[in-house]
């Protein structure tokens, strides 16, 4: 019943035996011990489990691990480099883009694909772009600012003010 799959997770190759019914998020968290990716609703709604599969953002609670055979997966642990934080991580830190932090890994991974396709999104494009990610602290205003900050930083534009908004 079990099958061997090969995946690259945050740059490291892994060969793992999985049951077909194992979900990708369980492979990442339990077999490969990368617990930055969270399980929130477990029903394809909240986006906390968002990872990149060959660059496409995906809800890993709704993908079978076996479907990721031969693919490259990026999780929040794959964002920072030896050079420091990813611009999105810096943006969330500078703009108070998180409160409890549970949605943050999914938000940041989703924003990676969003900024890759649209490097200079409007506020409404950002809000539409993260419409599959829920923040139960409702900290959306600062999350939007964090993504705007990362967008400016990645384009080499002037950084927006990082005065956080408390409502």
């Amino acid at each position: 019943m079990k099958k061997t799959i090969n995946i690259k997770l945050n740059g490291t190759d892994h060969s793992v035996e999985v049951e077909p019914r194992k979900l990708l998020v369980h492979l990442i968290r339990e077999d490969l011990s990368m617990t930055g990716t969270h399980i929130g609703c477990d029903t394809t709604s909240c986006g906390a489990c968002t990872v990149l599969i060959d660059g496409r953002s995906a809800k890993s609670c709704t993908i079978l691990a076996i479907q990721a055979d031969g693919k490259e997966i990026t999780t929040v642990e794959g964002l920072a480099t030896a050079g420091g934080l990813h611009p999105l991580q810096e943006g969330f830190k500078e703009n108070h883009g998180l409160q409890c932090g549970f949605c943050t890994p999914g938000m940041m991974i989703r924003a990676v694909e969003l900024l890759g396709k649209n490097p200079n999104p409007t506020e409404s494009e950002i809000r539409w772009g993260i419409s599959g990610n829920l923040c139960r602290c409702t900290g959306y205003n600062n999350i939007v600012k964090a993504i705007q900050y990362a967008s400016a930083k990645m384009r080499g534009a002037e950084l927006p003010s990082t005065e956080p908004e408390f409502v």
Partner: peptide
Amino acid sequence: IADPQVRNF
């Protein structure tokens, strides 16, 4: 339809 992640698949 659903959200961007779902539309990716």
